[in-house]
Design a protein around this nucleic acid. Structure first.
Lengths: 138, 138
DNA sequence: ATACAACCTCCAGTTACTGTAGGAGCAAGC
DNA sequence: GCTTGCTCCTACAGTAACTGGAGGTTGTAT
């Protein structure tokens, strides 16, 4: 009669660019609800699941950790919630990204300085190794 | 006679700012040699170990992954090696850091754009949620 | 009937540690 | 000589977010 309105896990995977194992992992972690099953035990999905998974992937693409994604999903589920909580989560995440960039930039300049000092001799007088080794007297 | 020229693992930990468990972890991973033991089985360390651990920590502070640290240690152990291999490892690492910074920067600007669009209403018309949700018609 | 793909569950591995449980040794004080 | 308390020992679970694989079942196409 009606064409199948549901998807197998592989279909959902292809539709969202997600690995099959990852979908099961999300289900286990409560990000996706326990999927309905066929008589033989295979998971079946509907449009709402595709949307929810797409939301999760998009959030992950923006770097939100799974805990934050969980919160965002809860908020998104209730359209009457004020947007503040969403905004706060996003700003916390932005601050975290800024911190990481700052850390990496500091690291980069230090490493760059170290590399610049290499005069391409032997390890015996390699400035890079010297930087790594503790400062020994004598 | 001579004052004890060796250290207990806790002493080494304090000297190098490393957790005791981490020192054992490095030994297990072959970054530090199997430590000598006292009759009762406690690890004992000497100056060379302190230096080697300091080298490891310094490398880690510069963000080198343990595999790279292993290679650097091998190179540092032979003073006659040309410095090129060291230089190459460092440059590969620098490139990796640059890649991470680029990724995070792209992420940052995208996230920043999303946050900027928040008009502080309800979730129903929250632009952040909208960005995360898949584009649905109707 | 027989392939073969896709599905199932469960588990190990990734990175670099960190923390904890349960037990033993060691120095100091009484 | 005994207790207290710190340090040490091994071994294992947990962290973040998956990924891959083993070993077995199901569904479909020929």
């Amino acid at each position: 009669m009606a064409e199948a309105a549901h998807l197998a896990i592989g279909d959902l995977a292809r539709l969202t660019g997600t690995k099959v194992n990852t979908i099961r992992f999300y289900e286990e972690g409560g990000l996706l609800p326990q999927a309905e099953r066929t008589a033989s035990g295979r998971r079946i999905y509907r449009d709402a699941d595709t949307k929810r998974l797409a939301f999760i992937r998009q959030s992950r693409n923006l770097g939100f950790p799974l805990d934050a994604v969980r919160e965002l999903l809860t908020l998104a589920d209730d359209a009457n919630q004020p947007c503040e909580a969403v905004d706060r989560i996003a700003r916390v995440h932005l601050a975290e990204i800024d911190r990481k960039i700052a850390d990496l930039s500091a690291l980069r300049s230090e490493l760059s300085r170290v590399i610049g000092s290499c005069s391409h001799g032997t390890v015996a007088d390699c400035k890079i190794i010297e930087t790594l080794a503790p400062h020994t007297d004598g």
